[in-house]
Design a binder for these strands. Sequence first.
DNA 1: TGGGTCATGTAACCTGTTACATGATTAG
DNA 2: CTAATCATGTAACAGGTTACATGACCCA
Lengths: 191, 191
Amino acid sequence: MLKHGILGLLNYGDKTGYEIMTVFRDSLNHFWTAQTSQIYRELQTMEKNGWISQRHVEQAGKPDKNVFSITEAGRAELLGWLRADNLPKSARDPFLMKTFFRGELPVEENIAYFRACGQERVFPDDGKQATAAAEMYRQAIQNPEKAVYWKLTIEFGRMFERMYRQWCQICVQELESLQQNQKNGTEEKEV
Amino acid sequence: MLKHGILGLLNYGDKTGYEIMTVFRDSLNHFWTAQTSQIYRELQTMEKNGWISQRHVEQAGKPDKNVFSITEAGRAELLGWLRADNLPKSARDPFLMKTFFRGELPVEENIAYFRACGQERVFPDDGKQATAAAEMYRQAIQNPEKAVYWKLTIEFGRMFERMYRQWCQICVQELESLQQNQKNGTEEKEV
DNA sequence: TGGGTCATGTAACCTGTTACATGATTAG
DNA sequence: CTAATCATGTAACAGGTTACATGACCCA
């Protein structure tokens, strides 16, 4: 997965491992993260696969660097990946897993929890995103048409955020009415 | 992660590795999947951790089985996990990663793609969920109060599904207007 | 003098996936 | 007879995380 992300970035222009890390950290953090440890390892195997090539650049006053470029084979791989299997949506959500088992904790605690969750933000806030956007245009995307896709991922984040807050509210409501029923001792079954 | 899911299930009652697998397959599949290969491995390390204990049961007409029970230490671990760090939301979405780089493909292709995506379902459909629900209540959760949390995870799925469809529509709209602008040659910049 | 940025990586570990392997019973 | 269910696992691999290690330059 990360391999193809790196491929996508190199397709916008040559980069060092370090630069790739900064792009992930500053601009792609709303859907992926990557440490240098992994990046350098992936670059190695990508080179073995013939997807990228490397050239050593000596620098004065700075450490030398290895600059990576995408090859024709790499570009083909990128397009293949983009077109491949329309997404089984991995269905693996630690957050829902926890929610599922929350019955072990007292209701009051869970109400407080969902109240707090509804406050937190899941995706990075729009201010940060805007700055990252500018940066992204400048260094990676000369073609402004491609920025549309970037905006769409941001929009997804916004919509998710909204939905998530609504859901937290529903959780609180649901649990409060459960609490109410327990107090009243009126246990009508509602399945 | 899976370890704690297994712990949560064993907390409802003793189970074999095989039974754990069926619960994941039939009832928890909307937020987690697990193969037996992983389950048996996790059970081993969980026993080493002292979270669970094992007893061998001989059966007539069926293969023998190993039944696992949660220990006090395991229950403590489960509660600790439930209460731990309020969720950094791992931010790792292969779907958004792909969307981000779709600029490499022709707009028409992407429009068709998002149209198709809006049709597919991401979470298992409600019919299946309802059946799995009944099953879940019967075999795992005696306490109907705990079913609330199960319903909340399903509700999350429903809301996500709705949001996702809306987003796909927005993608199509956005790309169609891009297409329009390109045809007209009227390139007003809109950042 | 100390912390941030640029720049490189290695090693061990954890978690999840895929493929393989076995074998009895039971229902259609 | 054959497919599904019950029941157990191993091995190899892939991908991501954490911790560690080095070192120069620049700015406050």
